[in-house]
Simulated scan of single mutants.
Amino acid sequence: MSARDGRPSRLRRLTALAEQAASREHILERLKSGSMHALLSVTAAVVAYIPPSSLGLQEGFWAAITALAVTQAELSATHSTARDQFLGAAIGGAVGAGFAYMLGHSLPVFALAAFIALVLAWLTNVPSAARLAGITVTIIMLVPHKTSDLTMLASRFGEVTWGIVAALIVATPVSMLRAHLEARHREASERQAD
């Protein structure tokens, strides 16, 4: 096949058309799965947001953000993400508040604290927690707040923890129901096969 006769470009176009057709085949399945995940995530976010806002806390949105970040289609993925979020918030919060207390708020101190938090997350053998550790350091050290750094740490850690709990409260029964329905479907299929 030579490049002059146009076959490679036709082959690329044909491959692209085949990929588009395959992606269209499953659009209803993707819509169903996406809608279920969206419903689960939004429910967890609302469950996470209502208590802090009812108590008059001004930053309850962090709990809703955490719930959205943690909620996954599969419960095992939700647990794994929840662990990452919890560990990342704990490491980042402790490092950020500690550095701010001992060395103050400045860009070099922030950079050092973020570096240390990221390395500590990797040392716990949960490198996926590093992202939230760095984000938490950033929130504590760079986001203006009227409270002490310790209060900011407690607030941030509490919001993340509550967001995780809300995600698990919503995701666990849904996952259990899904597993039950799948088991019933398998049993019915096996009975029909016999």
Rank of each mutant, 00 (worst) to 15 (best):
A114T: 02
L142A: 10
R4C: 03
T138M: 15
M36G: 11
K32W: 15
E190I: 12
V70Q: 08
E74F: 01
R186K: 05
V170Q: 02
E187F: 06
S9Y: 11
Q85A: 13
R156H: 13
A48P: 09
A89F: 05
T71M: 10
T15R: 15
I65R: 08
I164Q: 03
A188N: 04
S175R: 01
V143Y: 11
A167W: 05
L31I: 15
D149R: 01
M141P: 02
A130Y: 00
L31S: 12
A64D: 04
R83I: 05
V119T: 07
V126L: 12
L177T: 06
T81K: 15
S76H: 08
P52F: 08
V119N: 01
T15Q: 14
T66Y: 12
A69T: 13
I50A: 14
E25T: 12
S33W: 07
H26C: 11
A130D: 03
L150F: 14
S33I: 12
D149H: 09
P8C: 05
A89W: 04
T78S: 13
A67E: 09
L123Q: 09
T71N: 04
A171G: 10
T147P: 04
V160E: 06
R30K: 14
A114S: 05
D84A: 07
K146C: 04
L107I: 13
H185Q: 14
A100F: 11
S33V: 10
A188F: 08
K146L: 14
S35D: 01
A183P: 08
L31N: 07
R184F: 01
A89I: 03
G93T: 01
G134N: 10
S35P: 00
Y101V: 12
G104W: 06
Q192N: 09
V95N: 01
E182I: 09
G158V: 08
D149F: 05
A100T: 12
G92P: 08
S106Q: 01
Q20W: 09
M176C: 02
A117V: 00
H180C: 11
A48W: 04
E190R: 14
E159A: 11
H37G: 02
V160G: 05
S175F: 03
R12L: 15
A114L: 07
L39G: 12
W162N: 00
H26I: 15
T81V: 09
V42M: 13
L120E: 02
M152D: 13
L150W: 15
W162A: 03
A100E: 05
L112G: 02
F99T: 03
F115H: 00
G60A: 04
T124D: 00
A90Q: 06
V46N: 08
P127L: 00
Q20Y: 13
A16R: 14
L181A: 10
V143S: 10
V143E: 06
T15C: 03
R184N: 07
A154Y: 10
L107G: 11
L112T: 09
